[in-house]
Simulated scan of single mutants.
Amino acid sequence: MNKKGKVLMAMSGGIDSTVAALMLHKEGYEVVGITMKTWDYASSGGTKSNKETGCCNIDSFNDARAAAVEHGFPHYILDIRDEFGDFVIDNFVEEYLAGRTPNPCVMCNTHIKWRALLKRADALGCDFIATGHYAQIHQHNNGRYFIRKGIDETKDQSYVLWGLQQDLLSRTLLPLGTYHKTAIRQMAHDFGYPELAKKNESYEICFVPDNDYRGFLKRRVEGLEERVDGGNFVDTKGNILGKHKGYPFYTIGQRKGLDIALGKPAFVTAIDPDTNTVVLGEEEDLKGSEMKVAKINWIKYDGISDGMEVLTKIRYKDKGALSNLFATPNGVSVRFYEDVKGIAPGQSAVFYEGDDVIGGGIIQRVEQHLG
């Protein structure tokens, strides 16, 4: 066995995972490449279903395989469409139908992608699994493994990895966490793949390649449009303002595409699926001071002490806000030092101690709005 160990490298065919694989290969690991097929674009029915979208298409599969073959390590294609669809897509649809805003990338990482990789790593006799995420994994002196932000703040992906459990973290390598994207682009050139540095990156949900989640829901749920059309827009006091196209087609904080004229900017501040009601208010009405978070996964520590101060991020590109955590029977209550705008049930709340992720969970509800 190679003295560095054997690693199963998830390769999408893009610049990040390709460079990560070649880095590990150069460092002396025995690399096995694997590309996961999660979804058939043609079956999505979207307007970009046959275009390059960054992963899960034949061109990306071929790019990943070509890099592996050229550098002398094996490559496999892993079909996880059944595993992916049953959980990630069903959860995506169910959350919108419950009036919440899901984050399918977090769900995929937490419940599907890493578990699928580890299962195949064990079957292939691999010591580690690796991905091209911009984050770091360290081991605390308490023995627990935890995630640390990638040093490139513009690319940091620690937010989407909060759900990984200890058995996964202990066997995961993230080669790109200590590099900036500019350095990775240069490495692509140095490895002889200048075209990778020019390849478009995908920021879309992989199974919604045209970025139209509303269209996806309509195609996925038979009769949805007719079922939810014609609900009421109401103001924060319950006064009817007009009709909307159906509560699943709106998200907290949304301003554009409301198709209603009120003479002033209006924002979606709440969604009630039971009554098919969408509440519109002013930007100030989006602010909240406390929220409940459930489905917690603690990483750096095995729990918290009441009142622990953390920086809480409520969305991927959020800068975070100082807060205190308090244990509840079903998770934690997060109390912010200052009002936070746009807290959306269904999204992830991730708790940081400096650059270290101590844990995260799913936002359940906002407890208090301050005017």
Rank of each mutant, 00 (worst) to 15 (best):
residue 308 M to E: 14
residue 66 A to M: 10
residue 281 G to Q: 00
residue 288 G to Q: 01
residue 196 L to K: 00
residue 25 H to I: 08
residue 33 G to A: 13
residue 221 V to A: 02
residue 16 D to Y: 03
residue 117 L to D: 00
residue 170 S to P: 06
residue 224 L to G: 00
residue 158 S to T: 08
residue 251 T to Q: 12
residue 10 A to T: 05
residue 3 K to V: 13
residue 345 P to C: 07
residue 297 N to M: 10
residue 315 R to W: 13
residue 333 S to E: 15
residue 2 N to F: 11
residue 148 R to M: 08
residue 73 F to D: 05
residue 115 R to M: 09
residue 355 D to S: 12
residue 190 D to Y: 06
residue 253 G to D: 06
residue 103 N to D: 15
residue 316 Y to D: 10
residue 199 K to D: 03
residue 362 I to Q: 13
residue 124 L to S: 06
residue 299 I to V: 13
residue 296 I to E: 00
residue 315 R to P: 09
residue 96 Y to C: 11
residue 36 M to G: 12
residue 309 E to N: 10
residue 208 V to Y: 00
residue 241 L to Q: 05
residue 349 A to H: 08
residue 219 R to C: 00
residue 249 F to P: 02
residue 133 H to L: 03
residue 136 Q to G: 02
residue 103 N to I: 14
residue 328 T to E: 04
residue 297 N to D: 05
residue 237 K to L: 13
residue 371 G to T: 11
residue 351 F to G: 06
residue 138 H to K: 11
residue 365 R to G: 11
residue 155 K to C: 08
residue 217 L to M: 09
residue 223 G to N: 05
residue 211 N to Q: 05
residue 1 M to H: 10
residue 33 G to W: 14
residue 37 K to M: 15
residue 280 L to Y: 02
residue 283 E to V: 10
residue 304 I to N: 02
residue 327 A to K: 15
residue 344 A to G: 07
residue 85 G to Y: 13
residue 261 A to F: 11
residue 113 K to E: 05
residue 243 K to S: 14
residue 107 M to R: 15
residue 297 N to S: 09
residue 204 E to H: 07
residue 65 R to V: 12
residue 196 L to C: 01
residue 315 R to F: 14
residue 358 I to W: 02
residue 125 G to D: 02
residue 211 N to C: 02
residue 219 R to K: 07
residue 143 G to H: 08
residue 291 M to C: 14
residue 61 F to A: 12
residue 206 C to N: 12
residue 29 Y to T: 01
residue 76 Y to R: 12
residue 49 S to Q: 15
residue 205 I to G: 00
residue 238 G to I: 02
residue 254 Q to P: 08
residue 42 A to W: 15
residue 100 R to D: 04
residue 339 D to V: 09
residue 175 P to M: 03
residue 313 K to H: 05
residue 277 T to M: 04
residue 99 G to D: 01
residue 25 H to W: 13
residue 270 A to N: 13
residue 45 G to F: 13
residue 341 K to F: 11
residue 166 Q to A: 03
residue 14 G to P: 07
residue 222 E to K: 09
residue 343 I to R: 03
residue 281 G to C: 00
residue 307 G to W: 01
